[in-house]
Amino acid sequence: MSSAAKRDKIKTLILFLSPAAVLYSVFFLFPMAQAFYIALFRWSGMSPNREFIGFANFKKLLGFEMSGGATVPTDPMFWKALLHNFEFMIISLVVVIPLALFIGSVLSRKVWGSGTYRALYLFPNMISVVAVAVLWSFVYHPQFGVLNVLVEGVGLKPPLNGWLGEPKTALFCMIATSIWYGLGFYIVLLLAGIQSIPSSYYEAASIDGAGSWQQFKNITIPLVWDILKLAIVYLIINTINIFGLVYVMTDAHPTEHTHTLLTYLYQKAFSESDFGYATAIGVMVFVLIFSISLVSLRLMKREAVEM
């Protein structure tokens, strides 16, 4: 290619890429850079006045102090919220991914009614998260909730403070709801991957005497590995970013037992008018998602098998 033609090609590339690059910079990169910048200020979000305080917000967020002879975090709520996000993440990973893989493999077989089941599993995901949260609040309702009826039916006592008011149960009730809500999406995601595996592979394997488990382990898993990785990272991001469900179901009360990073961020920004600090939490959420995604992708690095 002559240098003039090359230059022309670069020009065209720039021309075609620039609208997207401009939009991306204006609506994504610039706000993100601004967030990093705002996190360095004490700012109520009520006026243009803000005071530069360097890394003080981060110091308070991540720091420790001596109190009553013990070392305690300067902001215990941040760590509690973080722990709740991890609980969301670990339980979701342990339950959703194996279950989605299992149901996905079952539905990929041409069994009777698999089409209907596919729709049924995806159905919760089509409802707005607010509606799901309201719906499940009724399930957990301390007076007329279905769960109370079931629990009492088997001779057990529902928690005195209600499922969503009891510190021991509130978080797990919300995790269960989020699993119910999200499962269908992961089933469909993995199902698409499983269905793209030619059936001849399975036929050959069964001729060679491989059982269902061996076929699953040696054919299905390696061939959907890329999609599985995507599903895991996506689930991690979703569980760190969880907000709407918690906000509607408990409004993060009792706070010490149900706050997540984003509900805490919201409280700091909008209830306590501490936008600088809230933005610092936002920056930490970004760092967290970025690093966990990176680490998990690295851990799951394994040659994908070409079909």
Binding site: Y140, P142, Q143, P159, L160, N161, G162, A170
Partner: peptide, 20 residues
């Protein structure tokens, strides 16, 4: 009332209005 800790303002006020 049992479960009051998990109730919103309208839910608990409803309990009152319903005479429970």
């Amino acid at each position: 009332q049992k479960g009051a800790m998990g109730m919103s303002h309208t839910e608990s006020q409803m309990e009152f209005v319903l005479g429970r």
